[in-house]
Design a protein around this nucleic acid. Structure first.
Lengths: 167, 167
DNA sequence: TTAAACTTTCAAAAAATATTGAAAGATTAA
DNA sequence: TTAATCTTTCAATATTTTTTGAAAGTTTAA
């Protein structure tokens, strides 16, 4: 496998993985491209390399910046904007975990809490609803605490977490 | 909030969450319905409660069974098939983690390994590609080991894992 | 000012994904 | 065997999501 093949394979794999994380293909591919690019890229560069439109590029770059994993960079004497990705993969993972907790986990926990707090009326169906949503609530809560602890850890958290769990 | 409101809220929340996990809305809703139903449900029951077609119900039930989180059940003297969900939420989480590792994580790890093994040719772009895909490979590998350890643990793994990490 | 260089917005079009429903396929009972 | 009951399949349709591209917006230089 040569450089171009490897690059394309990586970008397209990352692109299809994205879909499974609630991130669309173009967004994930832009991210992949920036991640392996030694230099910041301009919008034109990205459009050309991925063969996508200006509008698409603009919107997805914005989203990546909202996620906190892509940054604008200005080159001296140039009007054009350049973009880079967070290059430290552990920092990347932490940022993603943080955003997912905020966007998905926490809202879900709130709803589970509300639903599990309805009045017990003695029927089997109500009992079951309360029981199951309580169990889910408890698990989601634990997971969120766990994720946030992990986010607060230092740089090599993932290896450290692994060591702890194996012991 | 009364029973019906709570039930609908839970089913629709679970349904939209599903999308973010690579599971479609109908599939996630069927699962939610079965999870809070004290009795096994027939295909007719599910179609009626969720207002979806027979074909849709049939296909999504099959997928849920492929994921190992919904089971067929036969009532004595009845021809019709009934369905139940895995009711233990921790077992549910373990099953989902196991399947996601198998379907997504492991194939990705393989590709990252291939891509990071291309020949070093001294250029900056090749260096960066190798460096970043190696880092991702290492992280994905650690995560997979971590997930599989967790899967192998007993019933109350999540709380235990949390305790370990907090210490 | 104005013009040039660049970015964002958003309605329309395209592409991808999910859903339907009727026909074909199974399974069981008689 | 046939008929009844139930499930699966899949081409057609509907819905949702993504992408485009041109117009509007912004910023800077002169």
């Amino acid at each position: 496998m040569n450089y171009d093949e490897a690059k394309n394979k990586f970008i397209s794999t990352w692109g299809s993985l994205g879909t499974l994380w609630g991130i669309n293909k173009a967004m994930a591919q832009i991210h992949a491209l920036l991640l392996i690019s030694p230099e910041p890229l301009s919008m034109e560069d990205i459009m050309e390399q991925l063969q996508i439109s200006r509008g698409n590029t603009s919107m997805n770059l914005r989203q990546l910046m909202d996620w906190g994993i892509v940054f604008k960079e200005n080159k001296m004497g140039e009007r054009k904007e350049y973009f880079t990705s967070e290059k430290d993969v552990q920092e990347l993972a932490r940022q993603i975990a943080k955003e997912r907790s905020r966007r998905e986990l926490q809202p879900t926990i709130k709803i589970l809490k509300d639903v599990s707090n309805i009045d017990e009326d003695g029927t089997a169906k109500t009992k079951e609803l309360i029981k199951q949503t309580k169990a889910l609530h408890e698990m989601a809560d634990t997971l969120d605490i766990l994720m946030n602890r992990v986010i607060g850890q230092d740089h090599n958290w993932i290896t450290k977490a692994l060591v702890k769990l194996i012991k």
